[in-house]
Design a protein around this nucleic acid. Structure first.
Length: 842
RNA sequence: GCGGGCGUGGCGGAAUGGUAGACGCCGGGGACUUAAAAUCCCCUGAGCUUUGCUCGUGCGGGUUCGAGUCCCGCCGCCCGUACCA
């Protein structure tokens, strides 16, 4: 290492090896120190680490290293969310085995992570596709089954009628299968479910204890769980039958002008003898199953000959079969109130049904016409007999009370949250440990026969589930009666894998999923960091599993993640040209493009390419920057520094070459400050301002890190470095330089170690304590006071901190600028905010 | 469609209801050098009648002595929407 240049290509590896050899980041469960569990959402091993991972793990790393300096025993593990569809897609496209492909990706990505110098405890690494891991998962699934939290029921999937296979939602594009292009159908399958709804109330209540979660995430989960009070009642039908419906808006019951039932509702099925009805029911089966697709699809209905009698007015309401009503939700039938539900409004408009106002902003506007859309908001009830004049809330209760006393309906709490369907008709996942026997029914695999492992000899040359068509795998004897039986061929949703991995990191016993004592030592996770895209599903499922395991007495943890942080994406501009033949854009990678301030040209032909919007890095848009290439060029510390600079961590971070170059320059600049360490001139004037700034910086950076405001910590370190360089060779400057390595250590650990070693620091920087702060030096003795006239700045003056109101008032009135602005006008009021400002009101 | 979030100079952003633009990037000027790179110093929201003034935080209103911040109504973009992870 020369004096003038920090060489990451040498230093990075040196310190990474030193940490590994010393076991610096191996968590000691038996340590006396207070414990801290720092966790980032583990990655799917897609092939390469991308910048989003680097950003996520750098944030966790800063916290882990900082907390270690603060005297905590830190657990900062890493593993692999290794089951999932991309491995099967790779198998289909490249003819490789999903397992081999995944293992290779893991090896590659692990090496990449190690080159970034993360303070990870690799001794606890595992992949969810390890048979040990998924074997324990199968055991837990059997425990849940025994506890009554697992059951089977019919539910709808996307069916590709050409490939004869189930499609994931992302494999359905505009209602068509992504490979076959065939119109997707809804098809029912018998599938496995987890009873997350048993915990709906508790999951909702628990949100109130998660003070260190972002408010937005708690709100999203609250709305997702969706607790509401409503009325379930039955309409008497013209054919003598009854139609049970559920509504969250019984207050609008007088505005009901039709009923709608699902295509697979028994009443609809009963009418299917009519070819027109049958044709409509068939039509309803078309299309994808997602909520977005259902909600935005055209609302279609078929008017049946049946009518329903309104319980209050006695009016006959037409009963429609409708494509937007689903049998799986509620009773599979709804009452339509077009005036106060947008979906019903569109439906009524299309089928020319009455649209009645039963809620208005005030009673005088009871007959105001609608302005082309439903009014779902609050108001007073009108045109509703005994409900008139009531608030929406009161009217709901009044209708429920009336229905209950009349015996034709009852109030019910319902949840938007549905039970969690965990069946997947796919190979690369955890086999569901059950066996189907013709005489015994569905039989659990005995625990001593776990894990049920995946067969290796599978092919992906035709669509569908390889487990289903494997020649031998599914043929087993029934564990109960010994007769020939069949294995369950569905595998578990990969969200199951990620619902308990954080427990397995605490310890990895061979004979059980986790050790409750170790779980008690480390859990809950102190900081959990990941993308906001997981705000609902993953986080809710993990909270559910934690509750279910606690319910069964296996752990004593209420919430798995004490604090949550959702970081933003790494983005990059896109470069494209329109393909003139096909009319679609063709994208180019950043390294294929020569970018100047004026625009961009393609290096290959030196002609212009269009510079597009700055969006999330993705392979399809080719706007990705490979971390390896950047590390090879600038070193790990520059990349880490860039990940923390400028953008607040919860927002998107636009990648820029100029930005990373600036970071690389700053790494070198820091090195010069340390390496050109001047000799102290004991005769030099002490630089008390620098000393104060040093203490303020130490305290400020600590506070910023604790609040994950890394961009602010970065700004402070820039300011501190600027101040050091501008100061003269005094003892204070020496002290400031000496503290620098420790300040930057969580963010630029390689440079910090190198500097620490050079300055004669003892042991590894990573083991050193955080510098101490003298609180006395954090207090200012002088402050700048703003002088305003009518709220506009006219002058600033300095005053002693804590100066009284009269002093500040006098200072303000003495200002020439203020006097010119006031221009002799009568002063009506003077507002003094101590240590901040004086505002003269005329 | 529904739920949630975000919007500040050329760019990323800073700002307990109290001096809008800290810090960084880009750009401009200068020093050093035969020259370049590197480095260092200075300037850098717009406009004006420039001791200073006006405008300015997506758009339109409102509350307040004072609004980027609080309230109401919009617009745009992003995330989720239960089988992508």
């Amino acid at each position: 290492m020369t004096e003038s240049r920090f060489d990451p290509s040498v230093a990075d590896g040196r310190w990474q090896r030193a940490w590994t050899e010393a076991g610096t980041f191996t968590a000691d469960s038996d340590s006396e120190k207070p414990k801290s569990y720092i966790l980032e959402m583990f990655p799917y091993p897609s092939g390469r680490i991308h910048m989003g991972h680097v950003r996520n793990y750098t944030m966790g790393d800063v916290l882990a290293r900082y907390q270690k300096m603060r005297g905590f025993e830190v657990l900062h593990p890493m593993g692999w969310d290794a089951f999932g569809m991309p491995a099967e897609n790779a198998a289909m496209e490249k003819g490789v085995h999903p397992g081999g492909w995944t293992r290779q990706n893991i090896a590659q990505m692990k090496a990449q992570l190690q080159r970034i110098g993360f303070a990870l405890d690799w001794t606890r690494e595992f992949a969810t596709c390890d048979p040990e891991y998924y074997g324990h998962e199968q055991a837990l699934f059997l425990d849940l089954f025994a506890a009554g939290l697992v059951y089977r029921k019919e539910s709808t999937v996307n069916w590709d009628p050409v490939d004869m296979t189930v499609l994931a939602n992302e494999q359905v594009i505009d209602g068509k299968g992504w490979r076959s292009g065939a119109e997707v159908e809804k098809r029912k399958l018998n599938q496995w479910f987890l009873k997350i709804t048993d915990f709906a109330d508790d999951l909702l209540a628990g949100l109130g204890t998660l003070e260190s979660w972002p408010e937005k995430v708690r709100l999203m989960q609250e709305n997702w769980i969706g607790k509401s009070q409503g009325l379930e009642f039955s309409f008497d039908l013209s054919d003598g039958g009854k139609l049970p419906v559920y509504s969250t808006r019984p207050d609008t019951i007088f505005g009901a002008s039709f009923c709608a039932i699902a295509a697979d509702h028994p009443i609809a099925q009963g009418l299917a003898g009519d070819p027109a009805v049958a044709a409509f029911i068939d039509q309803c089966k078309k299309g994808a199953t997602t909520a977005a697709a259902l909600e935005t699809a055209e609302k279609l209905g078929y008017r049946t000959p049946i009518t329903a009698k309104h319980p209050f007015t006695g009016a006959d309401l037409p009963v429609f079969i409708a494509n937007f009503v689903l049998m799986e939700y509620g009773t599979g039938a709804v009452m339509g109130v077009p005036g106060h539900d947008q979906r019903d409004f569109e439906f009524a408009t299309r089928y020319d049904l009455p649209i009645m106002r039963v809620v208005a902003t005030d009673p005088a506007r009871a007959d105001e016409p609608f302005k082309g859309e439903a009014e779902a908001g609050d108001g007073v009830i009108v045109n509703s007999d005994f409900l008139d004049g009531m608030s929406v809330e009161d009217a709901k209760q009044a209708v429920i009370t009336r229905a209950e006393s009349g015996g034709w309906g009852e109030g019910r709490t319902v949840w938007r949250l549905r039970d969690w369907g965990v069946s997947r008709q796919r190979y690369w996942g955890t086999p569901i440990p059950f066996i189907h026997c013709d005489t015994c029914g569905v039989v659990p695999v005995p625990k001593d026969q776990l894990p049920v492992t995946l067969p290796e000899d599978v092919s992906f040359d035709i669509p569908g589930n390889p487990l289903e068509r494997h020649p031998t795998w599914k043929h087993v004897d029934c564990p109960a009666c010994g007769a020939a039986a069949r294995r369950e061929t569905d595998t578990l949703d990969t969200f199951v894998d990620s619902s308990w991995y954080f427990l397995r990191f605490a310890s990895q016993p061979a004979d059980k999923p986790f050790d409750p004592e170790e779980v008690a030592k480390w859990l809950p996770v102190q900081h959990y960091i990941g993308g906001v895209e997981h705000a609902i599903l993953h986080l809710l499922y993990a909270r559910f599993w934690t509750r279910a395991l606690a319910h069964m007495g296996q752990i004593a943890v209420a919430e798995p993640f004490a604090a949550l942080f959702t970081q933003g994406m790494v983005t990059h501009e896109t470069y494209s040209r329109i393909d003139t033949e096909r009319g679609v854009p063709v994208f180019f990678a950043p390294e294929e493009v020569d970018r100047t301030s004026a625009g961009a040209t393609l290096i290959a032909d030196n002609a212009v390419v269009e510079v597009g919007r700055i969006i999330k890095m993705s392979k399809s848009k080719k706007n990705v920057v490979d971390p390896d290439a950047i590390i090879a060029r600038h070193g790990a510390d520059a990349v880490r520094w860039f990940m923390l600079s400028d953008s607040p961590p919860e927002r998107d971070l636009p990648w820029s070459d100029a930005g990373i170059e600036g970071c690389a320059r700053f790494v070198q600049r820091l090195w010069r400050v340390v390496a050109n360490n001047p000799h102290c001139d004991i005769n030099a004037e002490p630089n008390r301002a620098l000393e104060k700034l040093m203490h303020r910086t130490i305290a400020g950076v600590a506070n910023d890190i604790e609040h994950l405001q890394f961009n602010k910590a970065v700004a402070r370190i820039y300011e501190f470095t600027n101040a050091i360089e501008r100061s003269h060779a005094s003892a204070d400057q020496m002290a400031a330089i000496a503290v620098l390595p420790r300040l930057i250590s969580p963010m630029m650990p390689h440079l910090a170690e190198e500097a620490w070693a050079r300055m004669g620091g003892e042991g590894l920087m990573a083991d050193a304590p955080w510098p101490t702060v003298d609180p006395a030096l954090l207090i200012d003795d002088e402050v700048t006071i703003a002088i305003q006239h009518m709220g506009k700045l006219r002058d600033t003056v300095t005053a002693p901190k804590g100066a009284d109101k009269d002093t500040l008032e006098a200072l303000a009135l003495a200002s020439a600028n203020l006097q010119r602005s006031v221009d002799g006008a009568a002063i009506r009021k003077i507002i003094v905010v101590p240590d901040r400002l004086v505002n003269i009101v005329t």
